[in-house]
Computed example of a mutant assay.
Amino acid sequence: MTRRTQGLVLAFLGALLTRLSLTGEYERFVTTWMRWPLLVTGIGLVVLALPAALGVGGENGDHSDHGDHAHPGEEDDHGHRAPRSAWLLLLPGLVAFVVSPPALGAYLAERRASDAPPPAPTTVFAALPDDVTSDLALEEFLWRAQTDEGATLAGRDVRLTGFVSTDPDGNWYVTRLVIACCAADARPVRVRVGEADAPPRNTWVAVTGTWEKGTGTTRTSAAVLDAGEVTPIDPPEQVYE
Score class of each variant (00 low, 15 high):
residue 37 P to C: 11
residue 230 V to A: 01
residue 209 G to A: 04
residue 171 N to P: 02
residue 51 P to D: 10
residue 54 L to E: 13
residue 185 D to P: 04
residue 100 S to E: 13
residue 44 G to H: 09
residue 139 E to H: 06
residue 165 S to E: 01
residue 138 L to C: 03
residue 196 A to D: 02
residue 113 A to S: 14
residue 35 R to N: 06
residue 29 F to P: 02
residue 141 F to G: 02
residue 68 D to H: 13
residue 49 A to V: 07
residue 54 L to W: 14
residue 181 C to Q: 07
residue 94 L to F: 13
residue 171 N to W: 07
residue 163 F to A: 02
residue 207 V to K: 00
residue 195 E to D: 15
residue 181 C to I: 11
residue 81 R to D: 06
residue 225 L to P: 01
residue 65 D to Y: 11
residue 213 K to Y: 02
residue 93 G to Y: 09
residue 107 Y to V: 09
residue 155 G to F: 05
residue 36 W to M: 10
residue 198 A to S: 15
residue 194 G to E: 05
residue 1 M to H: 12
residue 59 E to P: 10
residue 166 T to I: 06
residue 172 W to K: 02
residue 2 T to C: 06
residue 103 A to R: 04
residue 5 T to M: 15
residue 111 R to N: 12
residue 143 W to L: 05
residue 145 A to H: 01
residue 62 D to G: 14
residue 118 P to N: 10
residue 62 D to M: 14
residue 105 G to H: 01
residue 140 E to G: 02
residue 103 A to D: 02
residue 80 H to W: 11
residue 22 L to C: 06
residue 126 A to G: 11
residue 16 L to G: 10
residue 23 T to N: 06
residue 241 E to H: 06
residue 30 V to N: 00
residue 63 H to S: 15
residue 39 L to F: 12
residue 93 G to L: 12
residue 66 H to E: 14
residue 184 A to M: 13
residue 240 Y to F: 12
residue 131 D to W: 06
residue 27 E to T: 15
residue 210 T to M: 08
residue 5 T to K: 13
residue 140 E to C: 00
residue 151 A to E: 14
residue 127 A to F: 03
residue 179 I to V: 15
residue 99 V to A: 11
residue 166 T to S: 13
residue 97 F to T: 11
residue 99 V to Y: 08
residue 39 L to R: 09
residue 91 L to C: 07
residue 144 R to M: 10
residue 121 P to R: 07
residue 167 D to Q: 08
residue 87 W to G: 09
residue 6 Q to A: 15
residue 236 P to G: 03
residue 12 F to I: 12
residue 225 L to I: 04
residue 92 P to N: 12
residue 218 T to E: 09
residue 60 N to K: 15
residue 185 D to N: 06
residue 221 S to W: 00
residue 236 P to D: 04
residue 203 T to V: 02
residue 183 A to V: 15
residue 97 F to Y: 14
residue 233 I to E: 00
residue 82 A to K: 13
residue 141 F to P: 01
residue 32 T to Q: 09
residue 29 F to Y: 15
residue 13 L to G: 14
residue 173 Y to I: 04
residue 145 A to M: 02
residue 97 F to A: 15
residue 230 V to F: 01
residue 189 V to D: 02
residue 224 V to Q: 01
residue 139 E to R: 12
residue 157 D to Y: 07
residue 158 V to T: 02
residue 233 I to W: 00
residue 183 A to M: 10
residue 87 W to P: 04
residue 240 Y to S: 03
residue 215 T to A: 08
residue 85 S to M: 09
residue 182 C to N: 09
residue 84 R to N: 05
residue 203 T to F: 02
residue 176 R to S: 05
residue 54 L to T: 14
residue 56 V to Y: 14
residue 112 R to F: 06
residue 182 C to V: 14
residue 166 T to K: 08
residue 201 R to L: 12
residue 168 P to Y: 09
residue 113 A to L: 11
residue 10 L to M: 15
residue 211 W to M: 05
residue 97 F to M: 13
residue 128 L to R: 04
residue 152 T to I: 01
residue 220 T to K: 07
residue 222 A to G: 03
residue 82 A to I: 08
residue 124 V to F: 03
residue 232 P to K: 03
residue 137 A to I: 02
residue 10 L to H: 11
residue 229 E to F: 00
residue 128 L to C: 05
residue 67 G to I: 08
residue 60 N to C: 10
residue 155 G to V: 05
residue 57 G to T: 10
